[in-house]
Design a protein around this nucleic acid. Structure first.
Length: 595
RNA sequence: GGGGGUGUAGCUCAGUUGGUUAGAGCGAUCGCCUGUCACGCGAUAGGUCGAGGGUUCGAGUCCCUUCACUCCCGCCA
């Protein structure tokens, strides 16, 4: 491509072009002014070309004063650089362009933040001037990576026989799940659309419509509070659904896709080429979480039973155990020589996390096995041997113990597992460890109300023979519901769906929904399932988190072009904002507390 | 809704036990400089120390309130 702005881009000229007259356009990345000789690094999306102008040139004075980040067009000749002046850092470093003429295409005011700099700077200013921030190398490359990953995934999905469809953005609010974003309807006063939290019902309807395999890079909207790995408001999923499949068929497709994507875009090793499948129950016990980081070799063991032994005199824990608490522990290998401060810091850290601390002891053996450390004296030789048998701990290892009610216990041991591994440097940052978490329970008990509620997706298929499910023990019902986790990051969840209307009514009734409510709230779905629905299932991996892992970023805003801040405000566009009285009137809305 | 961290020049930061006129680097402006690539050298401008209140002879520093940003908990089928 050659036009009045450029004959080449800023990463195109090489030794072969020496002698050519060229036109380049781009941003003034950097100037180096030697008084009678001026270097200008001209930058565009593709790279940098060093341009040079000498005092004799009539443009010299003007170029010398030009503000960084001004957009200019230069006309000049490509010249060879002498051997000593070659810059190996840039691809065009063997040549430079002597400027004959130049023209300012876009002026630039004094910059609120430096573009050419590796400095970190305040989020607020970055978001307000996102267009400047996005010029910076790191984030510019992240956004390009994101584009490439999405395009690669599209291509792979097409190859796997999936069809891409768009689903509505203005849809109906649903009673389950996160808080909805609502959109008032002008033509239907007093009624609201909701933005989709996911195209869940639509993708199932697509299956009922007979399309067999669907995918979409789908925007999802949930009005929940932000986290480092969670944008407020909106995010993207690779939403996919397949008909006439079992769980393993979904797994095959997704494993194939993720392995291809991750090997294509990262040099990190995959710890497992076949993703291990861990049941929810096992994961909660061994890792204290349903999103375990399997790069971390530490495992949590339940040793509650040990605290009913007569030869254990750890009375605080024993009393707690009697009142229904559990004891779980983490064993660290060969840590007998770690300084006291190592253990105490972890105990102190645990207290900061809101736990009552982490007790610890180290197993030693002179004549016989004994435990050293503040609580070591409470354990007899035999009780230690039982712990060693249960946990695989050996002489020289240390045992960290926590005791509390199950939910708190899972939380603190999960955090401790991560903390201790980081302290001991046990996590290999150059690997990706994927796994499936499977066999989620269909229901759980609401801790506050004590009511039975859906633990995940209410449209999931319960496991087992439908005729034989024992609905009187809902908490024992497992679902064909699964998550993918990578390096402790929850990448997606999915399920084989319940396509049997009678079963759906039954399950919803357990969670407290009458037939009338279901008919009202899930009209489209329940209706569709009554007209010949195929068995189907799917999953929806989070695009943003995939790109985060590939870009090695801890914050989702580093892979999002125009993110909102933690308070769900777009500082660049000034959203959300006030609207006119006319707009409100049209929508039949009056504000309760107007400023 | 709750807890932690941060807030000093356009940007990144320093600022001791509360003590004189609040500093540095980058950027900006002006000057010098022909081989740099984080060019170099010299000078100048630039401050509501987030805001408000309090303690004190005296507050960037201590206390209270509040705002903004951020991390976490809750929340996220």
């Amino acid at each position: 491509m050659s036009n009045k702005y450029r004959t080449h881009n800023c990463n195109e000229l090489r030794k072969d072009h020496v002698g050519n007259d060229v036109v380049l356009s781009g941003w003034v990345n950097k100037k180096r002014d030697h008084g009678n000789l001026l270097f200008i690094d001209l930058r565009d999306n593709y790279g940098i070309t060093q341009c040079i102008v000498e005092k004799e040139n009539s443009s010299f004075a003007e170029l010398e004063k030009i503000q960084l980040e001004t957009v200019i067009k230069i006309e000049g000749k490509v010249v060879d650089r002498s051997h000593e002046t070659i810059n190996k850092e840039i691809k065009s470093g063997e040549i430079e362009v002597t400027i004959k003429k130049f023209k300012v295409l876009g002026t630039c005011k004094e910059l609120p933040l430096p573009v050419f700099s590796d400095q970190e700077y305040a989020e607020e200013i970055r978001l307000k001037y996102r267009f400047l921030d996005l010029r910076r190398k790191k984030i510019h490359e992240n956004i390009i990576l994101r584009s490439k990953v999405i395009s690669f995934i599209r291509n792979e999905m097409n190859k796997l026989g999936f069809l891409e469809f768009q689903t509505p953005i203005l849809t109906s609010s649903s009673p389950e799940g996160a808080r909805d974003f609502l959109v008032p309807s002008r033509l239907n006063p007093g009624k609201f659309y909701a933005l989709p939290q996911a195209p869940q019902q639509f993708k199932q309807l697509i299956m009922v419509s007979g399309f067999d395999k669907y995918f979409q890079i789908a925007p999802c909207f949930r009005d929940e509070d932000a986290r480092a790995d969670r944008s407020p408001g909106e995010f993207y999923q690779l939403d996919l659904e397949m008909s006439f499949v079992e769980q393993k068929d979904v797994f095959d497709v997704v494993e194939k896709l993720l392995i291809r994507t991750f090997t294509n875009f990262s040099n990190k090793k995959l710890l497992f080429n076949k993703f291990p499948q861990i049941t929810y129950k096992d994961s909660m016990l061994k890792y204290g979480s349903d999103k375990p980081d399997l790069r971390n070799p530490l495992i949590i063991f339940d040793i509650t039973e040990v605290f009913s032994r007569k030869d254990v005199s750890f009375d605080i824990f024993k009393k707690l155990v009697q009142s229904g608490s559990n004891v779980r522990c983490i064993v660290t290998k060969n840590t007998k020589d770690k300084p006291r401060s190592f253990f105490d810091n972890i105990d102190k850290w645990a207290k900061e996390q809101g736990a009552s601390g982490l007790a610890y002891f180290t197993i030693e053996k002179e004549r016989e096995v004994s435990a050293k450390g503040p609580v070591g004296k409470f354990f007899s030789k035999e009780s230690l041997e039982e712990i060693m048998k249960k946990t695989g701990a050996k002489v020289g290892d240390s045992v960290f113990l926590a005791c509390s009610k199950l939910k708190d216990l899972e939380k603190i041991t999960s955090l401790a597992r991560d903390k201790i591994a980081r302290e001991l440097n046990l996590i290999d940052n150059d690997t990706f460890a994927f796994c499936w978490i499977v066999d989620y329970p269909m229901f759980e008990k609401d801790e506050i109300t004590n009511n039975i509620k859906f633990s995940h997706n209410p449209f999931s298929m319960p496991q087992g023979d439908i005729e034989k499910i024992n609905f009187s023990k809902p908490l024992d019902i497992l679902a064909y519901q699964y998550d993918i986790v990578c390096n402790g990051v929850e990448l997606s969840s999915g399920a084989i769906r319940n396509h049997v209307p009678e079963l759906m009514y039954k399950l919803f009734s357990i969670a407290g929904y009458t037939e009338k409510i279901i008919d009202e709230k899930f009209t489209g779905m329940i209706n569709a399932l009554s007209y010949g629905a195929p068995p189907h299932g799917g999953i929806a991996p989070g695009i943003d988190r995939i790109v985060m892992l590939l870009a090695n970023e801890k914050n989702i805003r580093e892979v999002t072009m125009f993110p909102m801040n933690q308070n769900a405000q777009d500082l660049m566009m000034n959203a959300p904002s006030d609207v006119s009285d006319k707009q409100l009137k049209e929508l039949n809305i009056s504000l309760k507390n107007k400023k």
